[in-house]
Design a protein around this nucleic acid. Structure first.
Lengths: 194, 194
DNA sequence: CGCTGTCAATACGCGCGCGTATGGAAAGTG
DNA sequence: CACTTTCCATACGCGCGCGTATTGACAGCG
């Protein structure tokens, strides 16, 4: 009975996956720099001794966590809207879904603030390239000329990155729900041709 | 004669200002985290002993350097275009000047990647507020409705922040000069009403 | 020309976070 | 119920960067 309670608090014994998820949580909340093995261990209710059984080094954990995020992110963000046939509708839906602040975007933003890490930069280049390609193709299909489509994709992606940074880091005052919705519709109207 | 040569290499004796400028250089090149007193001392050709005569602590140097940047930035970025009467022209000129990658923007981008520092966050909020106000006013004067002007200002500022991040950190492939000019004109056309 | 104030070098202590070593507990296995 | 495997705790060493203490060099001034 006591053991059952304890099991609800914490799986009593951890796997590598638990550490990876914990690392991603810390990244989302306090950035990559906050992923320290001892603090993360405290968070999970164990000590370092556990960590170094599952991972050889802190970098190995980071690697595993980032790979996990990259997989999840790909099928959380672009995946759901990819099947939409109409390019404008596909873009609108992407914008709206993105605006509903999924955790993946919070982590993305945190990672943008940690590009000095050797692990993070190439990852973000891959993700950026995929998203830029996705946007460019959609804009082309929507009738824009090649160079214009590339420019617009870059502009839209810049607006995405900048907005995340400004909002999540509270550089700019927080909007209420109605304002937020209104802003999203404004960007859709401004960045998607009609 | 030898002394003259040495004086050209380095002012032979430093002032607090030299350290502040050195700190800003390091921030621009490698981020806030790279501002370490010993490495910065090496860069200036002296040792720690010098630093702690000019500053009580590393935080004090950061504070001074950031204040210096905030002053310079204000009169480098918004200052020159503020007198332009026509709001659209004022915005266009701001966009074009901003695109000519002044050092101030490089530092701005580096600081955006260091918001976890207690010193940086409030500074960036102040700077962000000033720029958002500037943009909002210009858009209103250009004839946009209140809420639309705020939205557009936010969108433009997001695009600015995101573009800096993506370009400077090489997340997105580098453009050649012609492409770059073309992109700037595309954003001007997309974000400034006619 | 000596004295004082300014800037710098050297040596040291300290805290923090990574990684190691080693022993112990709990869960599966025959 | 032995015995092995899996997971975890404790204690320790180490490097790095901040900050301090102390002494030294050099310029300007009286």
């Amino acid at each position: 009975m006591l053991s059952i309670v304890k099991k609800l608090e914490r799986p009593s014994r951890l796997s590598a996956i638990d550490w990876e998820i914990g690392a991603l949580d810390m990244i989302a909340e306090q950035g990559v720099g906050a992923v320290a093995v001892e603090s993360l261990a405290r968070r999970l209710g164990v000590t370092k001794g556990s960590f170094y059984w599952h991972f050889a080094t802190r970098e190995a954990l980071l690697k595993a966590a980032l790979e996990r995020w990259e997989r999840d992110d790909e099928q959380n963000v672009l995946g759901p809207v990819e099947p939409i046939a109409d390019p404008r509708e596909r873009l609108r839906e992407l914008f709206r879904r993105t605006s509903r602040e999924i955790k993946s975007h919070v982590i993305y933003s945190a990672l943008m603030g940690a590009l000095e890490h050797a692990q993070v930069a190439p990852l973000m280049r891959r993700v950026g390239q995929r998203r830029m390609d996705f946007l460019t193709i959609a804009y082309r299909q929507a009738g824009m000329e090649r160079s214009q489509a590339v420019h617009r994709a870059r502009l839209a992606y810049s607006a995405y990155v900048g907005f995340l940074q400004l909002s999540l880091q509270l550089i700019v005052p927080r909007m209420d729900h109605a304002q937020y919705e209104s802003y999203v519709e404004h960007t859709i109207a401004s960045l998607i041709p009609d």
